[in-house]
Amino acid sequence: MPLSREDVFAKVKEVLVDALGVDEDEVNEKATLTGDLGAESIDFLDIVFRLEKTFGIKIPRGELFPDDILNNPEYVENGKMTAAGLMQLKQTMPHADFTDFERDPDVGKMPNLFTVKTIVNYVAAKVA
């Protein structure tokens, strides 16, 4: 039986509580991993590892958390993501909500794309 979105969320919550040492009630779908939950770069590796283990899925590097897009000079201009960059990123991350980021594509705000919801969307699509 496929997992419901609620099941996925409950397990993702468990993963984040274990990986980041946060309280359960801090983990809601809107919470950003770095801003709200205090994740650091190494935590992303840890989260990916735990998700793979918990859900029995394989997450290719850069698929859930793309990390190489900012290294492409075509995609960043004056600290903002270019239209081409944004298009590329949206394609890479269909699981993320771009509403706020599109309004102000400041690359410093890119981590805000990585929310609990982003993970739940990603995993839900993967296990469907």
């Binding site: 770069s41 190494i42 590796l45 840890d46 590892f49 990390d67 190489d68 900012l70 290294n71």
Partner: peptide
């Protein structure tokens, strides 16, 4: 423990 292979990480 989580170990990092740092040459492969911390992009840039």
């Amino acid at each position: 423990i989580v170990f990092s292979h740092i040459d492969q990480n911390l992009s840039g």
